[in-house]
Simulated scan of single mutants.
Amino acid sequence: MLTDSPSRRTTPDTLGADAQRGAVSLWALLGVAWILFVGQAWTRWVLSDTQFGPAPIQGPDVFDGTALVVLRVIEVVSLLIAAATIWVFLIKPLIVQRKLTLDGMIVIGSLLASGIDPLINYFHYTFAWNAHALNAGSWLAFFPLHQGPTRYAEGLAWFVPQYLYLGIGLAAIECRIILALRRRYPSIPNIRSFSVAFVAIFCVDMVIEQVFIRTRVYAFPRAWEALTLFAGTPYQFPVYESIFVAIYAAGFTYLRMSAHDSADGTPFLHRGIQRWPSQFRTPVKLLAVIGFCAVWAALAYFIPWSWMSVNPDSIITPPSYMLPGPTTP
Protein backbone atom coordinates (compact mmCIF):
# COMPACT_ATOMS: atom_id res chain seq x y z
CA MET A 1 0.00 0.00 0.00
CA LEU A 2 1.08 3.55 -0.58
CA THR A 3 1.99 5.70 2.38
CA ASP A 4 0.80 9.26 2.64
CA SER A 5 3.35 11.94 1.84
CA PRO A 6 1.55 15.32 1.76
CA SER A 7 2.99 17.69 -0.79
CA ARG A 8 1.08 20.80 0.22
CA ARG A 9 -0.83 22.17 3.16
CA THR A 10 -4.56 21.55 3.28
CA THR A 11 -6.69 24.55 4.16
CA PRO A 12 -10.38 25.38 3.77
CA ASP A 13 -9.43 27.55 0.81
CA THR A 14 -7.60 24.75 -1.00
CA LEU A 15 -10.40 22.30 -0.26
CA GLY A 16 -12.89 24.75 -1.71
CA ALA A 17 -10.76 25.22 -4.80
CA ASP A 18 -10.50 21.45 -5.26
CA ALA A 19 -14.27 21.12 -4.96
CA GLN A 20 -14.75 23.69 -7.71
CA ARG A 21 -12.18 22.12 -10.02
CA GLY A 22 -13.13 18.51 -9.52
CA ALA A 23 -14.92 16.40 -12.12
CA VAL A 24 -15.93 13.48 -9.93
CA SER A 25 -19.57 13.85 -10.94
CA LEU A 26 -18.70 13.52 -14.62
CA TRP A 27 -16.61 10.41 -13.97
CA ALA A 28 -19.44 8.97 -11.87
CA LEU A 29 -21.88 9.62 -14.72
CA LEU A 30 -19.55 7.72 -17.05
CA GLY A 31 -19.52 4.92 -14.50
CA VAL A 32 -23.31 4.74 -14.52
CA ALA A 33 -23.32 4.75 -18.34
CA TRP A 34 -20.82 1.89 -18.43
CA ILE A 35 -22.75 -0.20 -15.91
CA LEU A 36 -25.91 0.23 -18.00
CA PHE A 37 -24.12 -0.65 -21.23
CA VAL A 38 -22.22 -3.68 -20.02
CA GLY A 39 -25.22 -4.76 -17.96
CA GLN A 40 -27.45 -4.92 -21.02
CA ALA A 41 -24.76 -6.71 -23.03
CA TRP A 42 -24.17 -9.36 -20.38
CA THR A 43 -27.90 -9.79 -19.68
CA ARG A 44 -28.80 -10.25 -23.35
CA TRP A 45 -25.81 -12.56 -23.80
CA VAL A 46 -26.80 -14.84 -20.90
CA LEU A 47 -30.41 -14.95 -22.11
CA SER A 48 -29.40 -15.62 -25.72
CA ASP A 49 -30.13 -19.03 -27.24
CA THR A 50 -27.36 -18.72 -29.83
CA GLN A 51 -24.51 -16.75 -28.23
CA PHE A 52 -24.28 -17.99 -24.64
CA GLY A 53 -22.45 -21.29 -24.26
CA PRO A 54 -19.03 -22.79 -25.02
CA ALA A 55 -17.74 -21.82 -28.45
CA PRO A 56 -17.44 -24.70 -30.93
CA ILE A 57 -14.05 -26.40 -31.19
CA GLN A 58 -13.12 -26.52 -34.85
CA GLY A 59 -11.09 -29.35 -36.38
CA PRO A 60 -8.91 -30.86 -37.67
CA ASP A 61 -6.11 -29.50 -35.46
CA VAL A 62 -5.81 -31.25 -32.10
CA PHE A 63 -5.07 -29.69 -28.73
CA ASP A 64 -4.81 -32.34 -26.02
CA GLY A 65 -2.40 -34.19 -23.75
CA THR A 66 0.31 -32.03 -22.19
CA ALA A 67 -0.85 -28.91 -24.04
CA LEU A 68 -4.31 -29.17 -22.49
CA VAL A 69 -2.85 -29.77 -19.03
CA VAL A 70 -0.70 -26.64 -19.38
CA LEU A 71 -3.77 -24.63 -20.36
CA ARG A 72 -5.63 -25.85 -17.26
CA VAL A 73 -2.64 -24.98 -15.07
CA ILE A 74 -2.57 -21.46 -16.52
CA GLU A 75 -6.29 -21.10 -15.82
CA VAL A 76 -5.91 -22.27 -12.21
CA VAL A 77 -2.88 -20.05 -11.58
CA SER A 78 -4.70 -17.09 -13.13
CA LEU A 79 -7.68 -17.62 -10.83
CA LEU A 80 -5.39 -17.91 -7.80
CA ILE A 81 -3.63 -14.67 -8.74
CA ALA A 82 -7.02 -12.99 -9.17
CA ALA A 83 -8.16 -14.24 -5.76
CA ALA A 84 -4.95 -12.98 -4.15
CA THR A 85 -5.34 -9.60 -5.86
CA ILE A 86 -8.92 -9.26 -4.67
CA TRP A 87 -7.88 -10.20 -1.13
CA VAL A 88 -4.87 -7.87 -0.95
CA PHE A 89 -6.40 -4.81 -2.58
CA LEU A 90 -10.11 -5.11 -1.80
CA ILE A 91 -11.16 -7.49 0.99
CA LYS A 92 -8.29 -7.15 3.47
CA PRO A 93 -8.30 -3.30 3.48
CA LEU A 94 -12.09 -3.41 3.77
CA ILE A 95 -11.78 -5.56 6.88
CA VAL A 96 -8.90 -3.65 8.45
CA GLN A 97 -9.88 -0.08 7.58
CA ARG A 98 -13.64 -0.59 7.59
CA LYS A 99 -13.97 1.34 4.35
CA LEU A 100 -13.70 0.87 0.63
CA THR A 101 -10.25 2.11 -0.40
CA LEU A 102 -9.15 3.49 -3.75
CA ASP A 103 -7.41 0.19 -4.54
CA GLY A 104 -10.58 -1.70 -3.69
CA MET A 105 -12.55 0.53 -6.03
CA ILE A 106 -10.02 -0.10 -8.79
CA VAL A 107 -10.48 -3.87 -8.31
CA ILE A 108 -14.27 -3.54 -8.69
CA GLY A 109 -13.91 -1.16 -11.62
CA SER A 110 -11.44 -3.46 -13.36
CA LEU A 111 -13.74 -6.46 -13.03
CA LEU A 112 -16.56 -4.46 -14.62
CA ALA A 113 -14.20 -3.08 -17.27
CA SER A 114 -13.57 -6.65 -18.43
CA GLY A 115 -16.90 -6.36 -20.22
CA ILE A 116 -15.18 -4.28 -22.88
CA ASP A 117 -13.00 -7.20 -23.94
CA PRO A 118 -14.88 -8.25 -27.12
CA LEU A 119 -14.02 -4.83 -28.54
CA ILE A 120 -10.64 -6.32 -29.49
CA ASN A 121 -12.41 -8.22 -32.30
CA TYR A 122 -14.90 -5.47 -33.12
CA PHE A 123 -13.78 -5.06 -36.74
CA HIS A 124 -11.79 -8.22 -37.44
CA TYR A 125 -10.80 -11.43 -35.70
CA THR A 126 -7.49 -9.98 -34.61
CA PHE A 127 -7.13 -11.84 -31.30
CA ALA A 128 -7.56 -15.60 -31.59
CA TRP A 129 -8.89 -17.47 -28.56
CA ASN A 130 -8.31 -21.14 -27.77
CA ALA A 131 -11.75 -22.77 -27.67
CA HIS A 132 -10.50 -25.41 -25.23
CA ALA A 133 -10.32 -22.78 -22.49
CA LEU A 134 -13.15 -22.46 -19.99
CA ASN A 135 -15.60 -20.19 -21.79
CA ALA A 136 -19.22 -19.39 -22.49
CA GLY A 137 -18.74 -17.80 -25.88
CA SER A 138 -18.59 -14.04 -26.39
CA TRP A 139 -20.98 -11.11 -25.93
CA LEU A 140 -19.68 -9.14 -28.94
CA ALA A 141 -23.02 -9.73 -30.69
CA PHE A 142 -24.56 -7.24 -28.25
CA PHE A 143 -22.13 -4.42 -29.06
CA PRO A 144 -23.79 -2.03 -31.55
CA LEU A 145 -22.49 -1.97 -35.13
CA HIS A 146 -19.93 -4.72 -34.57
CA GLN A 147 -18.35 -6.21 -37.70
CA GLY A 148 -16.21 -9.07 -36.36
CA PRO A 149 -17.26 -12.69 -35.73
CA THR A 150 -19.20 -13.33 -32.54
CA ARG A 151 -18.84 -17.08 -31.87
CA TYR A 152 -15.45 -17.50 -30.24
CA ALA A 153 -14.16 -18.45 -26.80
CA GLU A 154 -13.51 -15.63 -24.31
CA GLY A 155 -11.31 -17.53 -21.85
CA LEU A 156 -13.07 -16.55 -18.63
CA ALA A 157 -10.62 -18.20 -16.24
CA TRP A 158 -7.59 -16.32 -17.54
CA PHE A 159 -8.71 -13.12 -19.29
CA VAL A 160 -10.73 -11.67 -16.39
CA PRO A 161 -7.77 -12.08 -13.99
CA GLN A 162 -5.64 -10.20 -16.51
CA TYR A 163 -7.73 -7.08 -15.93
CA LEU A 164 -6.68 -7.27 -12.30
CA TYR A 165 -3.00 -8.16 -12.40
CA LEU A 166 -2.23 -6.15 -15.56
CA GLY A 167 -4.01 -3.17 -14.01
CA ILE A 168 -3.85 -2.78 -10.24
CA GLY A 169 -1.15 -5.46 -9.94
CA LEU A 170 1.32 -3.89 -12.36
CA ALA A 171 0.38 -0.41 -11.09
CA ALA A 172 1.37 -1.46 -7.56
CA ILE A 173 4.75 -2.54 -8.91
CA GLU A 174 5.14 0.72 -10.82
CA CYS A 175 4.32 2.75 -7.71
CA ARG A 176 6.97 0.88 -5.73
CA ILE A 177 9.53 1.59 -8.44
CA ILE A 178 8.63 5.29 -8.52
CA LEU A 179 8.79 5.64 -4.74
CA ALA A 180 12.09 3.76 -4.61
CA LEU A 181 13.54 6.10 -7.22
CA ARG A 182 12.29 9.11 -5.26
CA ARG A 183 13.99 7.84 -2.13
CA ARG A 184 17.24 7.16 -3.98
CA TYR A 185 17.13 10.35 -6.07
CA PRO A 186 14.98 12.93 -4.22
CA SER A 187 15.11 15.45 -7.06
CA ILE A 188 14.19 13.00 -9.84
CA PRO A 189 11.53 14.44 -12.19
CA ASN A 190 8.23 12.61 -12.42
CA ILE A 191 8.66 12.09 -16.15
CA ARG A 192 11.88 10.18 -15.52
CA SER A 193 10.62 8.02 -12.65
CA PHE A 194 7.38 7.21 -14.44
CA SER A 195 9.30 6.38 -17.63
CA VAL A 196 11.59 3.96 -15.80
CA ALA A 197 8.55 2.25 -14.26
CA PHE A 198 6.84 2.17 -17.67
CA VAL A 199 9.78 0.42 -19.32
CA ALA A 200 9.96 -2.11 -16.48
CA ILE A 201 6.28 -2.99 -16.87
CA PHE A 202 6.67 -3.18 -20.64
CA CYS A 203 9.39 -5.80 -20.17
CA VAL A 204 7.31 -7.74 -17.63
CA ASP A 205 4.36 -7.90 -20.03
CA MET A 206 6.60 -9.04 -22.89
CA VAL A 207 7.49 -12.10 -20.80
CA ILE A 208 3.87 -12.76 -19.75
CA GLU A 209 2.67 -12.52 -23.35
CA GLN A 210 5.25 -15.03 -24.56
CA VAL A 211 4.05 -17.56 -21.99
CA PHE A 212 0.47 -17.28 -23.24
CA ILE A 213 1.42 -17.32 -26.92
CA ARG A 214 3.86 -20.23 -26.72
CA THR A 215 1.36 -22.36 -24.83
CA ARG A 216 -1.29 -21.59 -27.47
CA VAL A 217 -3.68 -19.91 -25.05
CA TYR A 218 -4.16 -17.21 -27.68
CA ALA A 219 -2.60 -15.92 -30.88
CA PHE A 220 -2.37 -12.70 -32.88
CA PRO A 221 -3.42 -13.56 -36.46
CA ARG A 222 -3.37 -9.94 -37.71
CA ALA A 223 -0.38 -7.70 -37.00
CA TRP A 224 1.88 -5.02 -38.45
CA GLU A 225 5.04 -6.80 -39.56
CA ALA A 226 7.38 -3.86 -38.88
CA LEU A 227 6.30 -3.88 -35.22
CA THR A 228 5.98 -7.65 -34.79
CA LEU A 229 8.36 -10.25 -33.43
CA PHE A 230 8.39 -13.67 -35.18
CA ALA A 231 6.20 -12.21 -37.93
CA GLY A 232 4.60 -14.76 -40.21
CA THR A 233 4.95 -17.61 -37.70
CA PRO A 234 2.25 -19.11 -35.44
CA TYR A 235 3.91 -17.25 -32.56
CA GLN A 236 3.99 -13.78 -34.08
CA PHE A 237 3.77 -11.10 -31.43
CA PRO A 238 2.96 -7.42 -32.07
CA VAL A 239 5.19 -5.41 -29.75
CA TYR A 240 2.55 -2.69 -29.54
CA GLU A 241 0.47 -5.14 -27.50
CA SER A 242 2.89 -4.70 -24.60
CA ILE A 243 3.05 -0.95 -25.21
CA PHE A 244 -0.72 -0.69 -24.86
CA VAL A 245 -0.70 -2.89 -21.76
CA ALA A 246 2.01 -0.71 -20.19
CA ILE A 247 -0.04 2.40 -20.99
CA TYR A 248 -3.08 0.74 -19.41
CA ALA A 249 -1.14 0.00 -16.22
CA ALA A 250 0.35 3.52 -16.24
CA GLY A 251 -3.13 5.02 -15.94
CA PHE A 252 -3.74 3.21 -12.67
CA THR A 253 -0.24 4.11 -11.53
CA TYR A 254 -0.95 7.78 -12.08
CA LEU A 255 -4.29 7.45 -10.30
CA ARG A 256 -2.67 5.86 -7.24
CA MET A 257 0.27 8.27 -7.23
CA SER A 258 -2.06 11.26 -7.47
CA ALA A 259 -3.61 10.10 -4.18
CA HIS A 260 -0.17 9.58 -2.64
CA ASP A 261 1.03 13.04 -3.70
CA SER A 262 -2.16 14.80 -2.65
CA ALA A 263 -2.15 16.65 0.67
CA ASP A 264 -5.46 15.08 1.70
CA GLY A 265 -4.97 11.69 0.02
CA THR A 266 -7.57 12.41 -2.65
CA PRO A 267 -6.76 11.22 -6.20
CA PHE A 268 -7.43 13.53 -9.13
CA LEU A 269 -10.46 11.43 -10.03
CA HIS A 270 -12.27 12.31 -6.79
CA ARG A 271 -11.71 16.04 -6.80
CA GLY A 272 -15.02 17.76 -6.22
CA ILE A 273 -16.43 15.05 -3.95
CA GLN A 274 -17.03 17.72 -1.29
CA ARG A 275 -20.03 18.87 -3.32
CA TRP A 276 -21.81 15.62 -2.45
CA PRO A 277 -23.50 14.85 0.89
CA SER A 278 -21.32 12.59 3.03
CA GLN A 279 -23.64 9.56 2.74
CA PHE A 280 -23.28 9.57 -1.07
CA ARG A 281 -19.55 10.12 -1.31
CA THR A 282 -18.38 6.51 -1.28
CA PRO A 283 -20.87 5.37 -3.97
CA VAL A 284 -20.01 8.40 -6.12
CA LYS A 285 -16.29 7.72 -5.72
CA LEU A 286 -16.83 4.08 -6.71
CA LEU A 287 -18.88 5.05 -9.75
CA ALA A 288 -16.14 7.51 -10.76
CA VAL A 289 -13.50 4.76 -10.59
CA ILE A 290 -15.75 2.40 -12.58
CA GLY A 291 -16.08 5.11 -15.23
CA PHE A 292 -12.34 5.68 -15.28
CA CYS A 293 -11.55 1.96 -15.60
CA ALA A 294 -13.84 1.56 -18.61
CA VAL A 295 -12.79 4.78 -20.33
CA TRP A 296 -9.10 4.16 -19.74
CA ALA A 297 -9.31 0.57 -21.03
CA ALA A 298 -10.91 1.92 -24.21
CA LEU A 299 -8.46 4.79 -24.71
CA ALA A 300 -5.26 3.05 -23.66
CA TYR A 301 -5.81 -0.31 -25.32
CA PHE A 302 -8.95 -1.18 -27.25
CA ILE A 303 -9.44 1.83 -29.50
CA PRO A 304 -5.80 1.99 -30.69
CA TRP A 305 -5.66 -1.81 -30.98
CA SER A 306 -8.85 -1.93 -33.05
CA TRP A 307 -7.52 0.82 -35.31
CA MET A 308 -4.23 -0.99 -35.87
CA SER A 309 -6.03 -4.22 -36.74
CA VAL A 310 -7.79 -2.72 -39.77
CA ASN A 311 -4.91 -2.84 -42.30
CA PRO A 312 -2.24 -5.29 -41.04
CA ASP A 313 0.34 -6.84 -43.37
CA SER A 314 1.31 -9.94 -41.37
CA ILE A 315 -1.70 -12.24 -41.43
CA ILE A 316 -1.56 -15.87 -40.34
CA THR A 317 -4.16 -18.60 -39.96
CA PRO A 318 -4.21 -19.86 -36.36
CA PRO A 319 -4.91 -23.50 -35.48
CA SER A 320 -8.48 -24.55 -36.19
CA TYR A 321 -9.35 -24.71 -32.48
CA MET A 322 -8.69 -20.96 -32.33
CA LEU A 323 -10.94 -20.09 -35.26
CA PRO A 324 -14.39 -18.58 -34.63
CA GLY A 325 -17.45 -20.66 -35.27
CA PRO A 326 -20.14 -19.74 -37.79
CA THR A 327 -22.19 -16.70 -36.83
CA THR A 328 -25.77 -17.61 -36.00
CA PRO A 329 -28.67 -15.16 -36.27
Rank of each mutant, 00 (worst) to 15 (best):
L286T: 14
S114C: 12
P267K: 02
R8K: 09
F52W: 01
Q274L: 12
V295Q: 12
R256S: 06
P186M: 12
K92Y: 04
L134M: 03
L119Y: 13
I178A: 04
E174A: 14
R271F: 01
A33P: 03
Y165P: 00
I106H: 00
Y218H: 03
K285Y: 04
R184W: 14
Q40T: 12
A250Y: 11
P318C: 06
A19V: 06
W158C: 00
I201P: 04
I81R: 12
S138E: 02
G109T: 03
A219K: 05
A263T: 03
A153P: 04
T328Y: 07
A17G: 05
S314A: 14
V77H: 04
F37G: 01
P6Q: 05
N311H: 13
Y163W: 05
R192N: 14
A171G: 09
L26E: 01
T43C: 04
S320A: 09
L229E: 10
A223V: 08
L102M: 02
A133M: 04
L179M: 10
F252S: 02
S242Q: 13
Y125M: 02
L111I: 14
Q279T: 06
A136G: 15
I201V: 15
V107E: 09
L102Y: 07
S278T: 13
M105P: 08
T11R: 05
L68H: 07
A153E: 00
A128L: 06
I95E: 02
P312F: 11
R184C: 09
P326L: 09
F37W: 08
V24I: 15
T85H: 10
L119N: 08
V62P: 02
T327V: 12
A197D: 11
L112C: 00
I57Y: 02
V107C: 03
T233Q: 05
Y301T: 14
G325M: 06
H260A: 14
I168G: 03
W158D: 02
P60S: 12
A84V: 11
T3P: 02
K92E: 11
P186I: 09
G169M: 05
M105T: 09
G148E: 10
D103M: 10
L80V: 11
V107L: 11
C203Q: 03
F63C: 03
F159S: 07
